[in-house]
């Protein structure tokens, strides 16, 4: 679709607000509807839109599958790590009360961190899934096994 100028222009304009919205949903999630899942999917939508319009190769250059693998794992680690950190501070797993000096701040940080982890993983996984399916049959050199799609 590289020839469609209208689409290219509109996409270029739209991608930034989409990402911005994703970030809003992500970081305002503890006060309003939203959170990591939703934000992640919206963010991934931006990348996918980019790939659709400018081509898979271009998208892969911008957001490389290798990066996605790392961010996906990191997201999960942040989630679990937050829980473990709470454990180290003497609370139960994922007990945010222990993350800061007082419970309110602790809850705030905890939620923020966990949602960030979730969001990171969701972006990575959704985009990976898209890459895998879209790239199938075209480039077999860096194919990913189905086990990646969790």
């Amino acid at each position: 679709m590289r020839e469609h100028t209208v689409l290219r222009v509109v996409t270029k304009v739209l991608i930034a607000p989409i990402i911005l919205f994703a970030l809003y949903v992500q970081f305002h999630g503890d006060y309003s509807p939203g959170g990591g899942f939703q934000a992640g999917v919206v963010f991934a939508a931006a990348i996918i839109l980019y790939a659709l319009i400018f081509g898979l190769a271009e998208a892969r250059r911008a957001v490389s599958p290798n990066l996605l693998r790392i961010t996906g794992a990191l997201g999960a680690l942040i989630f679990a790590g937050t829980g473990v950190y709470a454990m180290l501070r003497g609370g139960n797993f994922l007990d945010y009360d222990y993350l800061a000096h007082d419970a309110v701040h602790g809850q705030h940080y905890g939620l923020l961190l966990v949602e960030f982890g979730v969001g990171l993983t969701v972006v990575s996984v959704i985009t990976s899934i898209f890459y895998v399916f879209a790239g199938r049959g075209r480039r077999n050199d860096d194919e990913q096994p189905p086990g990646d799609a969790r």
Binding site: R69, I70, G72, A73, L74, G75, A76, L77, A80, G81, V84
Partner: peptide, 9 residues
Amino acid sequence: LLAAPICVL
């Protein structure tokens, strides 16, 4: 749960 992403990394 921690070990799985570490493996991926």
